[in-house]
Every structure is written in C-alpha cells, then in structure tokens.
Amino acid sequence: MFDLIKKFKKLFDNSSRDFAKSTCSNSPMSNNINSEDNLTVWEKVQIARHPNRPHGLDYINYIFSDFFELCGDRFNENDNAIIGGIAKLENQSIMVIVHEKGHDIETRIKHNFGMANPHGYKKACRLMEIASELKIPVLTLIDTSGAYPGIISEERGQGYVLAKCLELSSDLNVPNISVIIGEGGSGGAISLALSNVVLMLENSIYAIISPEGCSAILWKDQKYKEKAAEAQKLTAQDLYKYGMIDDIIPEPKGGAHQSKTATMDQVKKYIMHHVNKLIKEFKENPESIKRKRAVKFLNMGNATDA
C-alpha cells in the first residue's frame, strides 16, 4: 500500500501536462487513448474505488447550471444510492441518473455505499419514462460495486427490477448516454448502461463481478484478487479494444482524485459532444435512435469472431 502511495505521489509530482488541453480540441473521439499508461490493473481498480474520486453528486453539482431532484419510486420508497432528476446542461434539458457512493461514514450510510435496492432501480425506470415523455435525453453516471444483496432487495425483486431497467433502456425512444465514472459493477451497472453511447473514464473499471468475488469463486480464495483483476480484462482500455465502449475519457495524471474539477470538466466536454451529436441525429430521424441502440447491443462482442 505504501508503495502504491509513493507511486501515485511520483506520478502527481511529475505531472506537468496541462491536462485540460491535452485532448479533444475539436472532437473528443481522440486517438491518443491512454498511451502513457503505466499502472497495473490492480492499481487501476484501487484508483477506480478511490474515495476522493468525483462521485455522482459531485458531477451533478458541477456540470449542470441547475438540477431539480426527482425522488421516490412511486410505490413505497426513495433510494439514495441512485439519485436522479431534471437538469440543464448548457442549453439542453436532460434527465440525469447517477449512482452515489458517499464520501464519509455518514453519507456512505445514507447512500448505502452506492449499492441500490430495487426501489432505486424502480426510480430510475420512472425517470427514464418521464424523459421519454418529455423527449429529453437521459444521462447516467455509473459508479457502483453492484446492486445491493439483501433480504428486502430479494423480496422486492432485485433481479426483476434490473431486468426491467435493461428492457426499458433498450426500448427508450430518446437518446441515452452513460459514463462509467468509477466502478461498473455487474448487473447493477449494466442495467443503467444500455445506452446509445457508453463512455468510461480512463481509470474506471467495468466487470461482471468484482476481482474479490471472482477470486473467491474461481480460485476459492479472495487473496488472488490481483490475478483475478488481470484475468478479467476489466479496464477501460481492454473494453475499448473489445468494442464494448465508445470512447475513453482521459483523467489527470495519477487519477481523477488528483483534480476533481479537471476530471469533471473533461467529462462534461465529452458528454456535451455526444449529447449534441445524438440530439442532432434524434431530430433528423427519431426512430433511428432506438433501432441503432438495439443493433449495437445485439451485435456487441461478436466482431472478433473468425
């Protein structure tokens, strides 16, 4: 751990690059994706989970000129692990749905460490339906270790609600865009990431199971988590290579926690670019959005075949 801190420090000290200017002068679809990356996969996992990384609510407070929170699943509860509402992104009205992990003991408990119960995903479904009525795009920011495993969450149909969220996202007649800002943990992540455009921050991760879980199941011991992380190919760079995501958003040297505002500026720039593009397409041909999304996911991951 000490070595890791030293390494981060070194990276940070050496950083002289003007990060905000480094990419995407015209188009964020940059080619220089992470060429100087020298972190191990496990270090990336730790950066993705870093407590000082900008979280969902940080983005909400920073990138929108105004945000009005919409609460409750309209059945019986309001979940704080998923926060959502209507927001203004420059001149564009948008529906935003984020995972929030919390940053200290109190807020982590309030937000249940970013692990949502079924009522959280039901709220997300409700918000997507509203966006569809209002004909405004949906933005989701993903940062969760997974959907919450508990007795109540099973009683209220965690599996069903996640499936419904997937179905609704796939069927949405307005554009949607997702950014994996930290941890993209399994079903709890993909249920909000079935989008026209899926982006990942440079040091974020996206996987079917946590390295610890994978290690416990396949190696029968949690101590092989580093090996498991390597084997899982869960980094943004791997996922981009496999065609699972559309672009990678660069982070400041050493990780997003080194400069929250620089990271969020960058994320905003990418979101603006893609939202504008999608809106233009949506105006020209409203039907194509849903169809293209379905085609994209139906063919996903089959391109590497011989």
């Binding site: 997937l166 996987a207 079917i208 899982q232 996922l239």
Partner: peptide, 23 residues
Amino acid sequence: GARMQEGIFSLMQMARTTIAVKK
C-alpha cells in the same frame, strides 16, 4: 448466472438477451 470466464462479454449478454426477448 453469467459466465465469469468470459468477463465483460458475459455481462453484455444480459443486454443482448433482454433485447432479443423484447423483440
């Protein structure tokens, strides 16, 4: 559940199969 040995490819099958049955 999903086949861990296929990593992110197995996660994406949740999306694919959902779209398939929705059709």
